[in-house]
Design a protein around this nucleic acid. Sequence first.
DNA 1: CCATAAAATCGACCGTGGTCAATTTGTTTT
DNA 2: AAAACAAATTGACCACGGTCGATTTTATGG
Lengths: 202, 202
Amino acid sequence: MHPVREQNKINKRKAIIDAAIKLFSRNGYEQTSIEELAREAGVGKGTVYSYFQTKKEIVHAFCEAELDFTRSELAAHTNPESSLQEQLLVIFMAEFKHITENRDFGRIYLQESVFPREHHGEADLEMQNQYFEILYPIYRGAQRRGELRSDLELLHIAGHFWALHLLILSCWYNGMIPTKEAPEAMKTLINQAVDGLKPPTI
Amino acid sequence: MHPVREQNKINKRKAIIDAAIKLFSRNGYEQTSIEELAREAGVGKGTVYSYFQTKKEIVHAFCEAELDFTRSELAAHTNPESSLQEQLLVIFMAEFKHITENRDFGRIYLQESVFPREHHGEADLEMQNQYFEILYPIYRGAQRRGELRSDLELLHIAGHFWALHLLILSCWYNGMIPTKEAPEAMKTLINQAVDGLKPPTI
DNA sequence: CCATAAAATCGACCGTGGTCAATTTGTTTT
DNA sequence: AAAACAAATTGACCACGGTCGATTTTATGG
C-alpha cells in the first residue's frame, strides 16, 4: 500500500477544513481568501484545489460531516416511545439551530445541496439516501404505533417531512419567521401533514 | 418630473435584461462576462452594476418576472371547477417545466430566492406574499368545495404545497427524479398532503 | 542504494466580478 | 442662456477564485 501518502492526504484535508472553520468563522466566508486559507493550513494554494473543487465545496464538506453526526447522534438518542411530532421536532430543530447559528455556512450548504450545479457522482446520491435512512427507524416506529399510514413508502414520508423542514429554513432565511417562532411553525406544519389538509371524514 | 431620465432608466434596464437572456442562453451563465453583457446592451460595465447588485441578480430579475407572469396567467385561466389536485398540478408543472428547461437560470434563481444572502428590504417580503396570493383563490375555492379544511390559514396551506413543489425541484436537481416522472411524483405528494399521513379514522 | 516512474505540491498567472473617482448628461435656478 | 447642481455613466483598476506546468516528494524495481 501507500500508507504515508494516505495518511498525509487525510491530515492535509483535515488541516484545510480546520483552517476553513477557523477563518470562515472569524472573518466570514467572503472575507477569507483561498490564499489566506492555504497559508493557515500550511499548504499551497493549488493544493487546496486538489482536495476540493471549489471554495463552496469546503463549506459543504464540513457542514455535511457535522450535520450527519448530530443527526445520527440525535436519531439514536431520541426517546423512541415519544410521539412522532416530538421526535421530529427534536431532530429538525437541532438541525435548524446548527444552520441558523451559522447563517453563512448554512446558506452555502443548503444552496449547494438542495440545488446543486451537477449531481456529481453516485456517491452523492448514496449520501442523500443515507441522509434519509437515518430517520427511517423513527418513521417505522410511528407506523407500528399507528401514527402513520403503513401503505406509504418510507421515502415519500421522509421526503414530505424534509420538505416542510426546508420550508421553515427558507422562511427563516427570508425573514418571514424569526428564530424563536420556528419550533411552533414546525409543529403546526407537522400536524397539518399528519392530519391531512382535507376535512376529517366523519 | 424627470421624464427623460426615468425613460432612459427603464430602457437601459430592459436592454441589460434582454442582453442577459440572449447571451446567457446562447453561451451559458458562467461563460458570459459582465463586460460582454454590457457591450451587448450598449452600456458601460459600471452601469450594469448601477441597475443590479450582482450578476446573479440579473438572472433573478428576469426569472421572477417570467415566472410571475406565467403563474398568474395560469392561475387565472385554470378551470376553477376542476379538482384541487388538477389545478395545482397544472400550475406547478408549468413552473417546473420553465425551470427545468433552463437548468442554469433555474438553479441560480432558486438558490437566491429560497436561501437568499439577506432578505433585502420589505419589497422582497411583499414579493413573496404576492407570490403566494396568486394561488389563494384556488385554495379558497377548494375550501368552498370541501376539498380543504377551512380552519387552516391560507398561508399555511400555501406554504405546505409550495414545500412539496420545492422538494420535487430539489430531487430533480439531484438526479433523483427524471423529468418525465415529476408529474406523477407531484401527484403522489399532493394526495399525501391532502389525505394526511396518519391512518384514516374509521 | 540508485534510477525511474508516479503522485502530490506549489505559486506565478489568468480572467472576471465588483468598485470608484472622474466625466458626461440632464435638470433647476437665476 | 448660463451657471450651478444632481444624477447617471464610464472604464481603469483591484482582489480573488481557479488553472497549469514546473518542481518536489514518495513509492517501486533492480
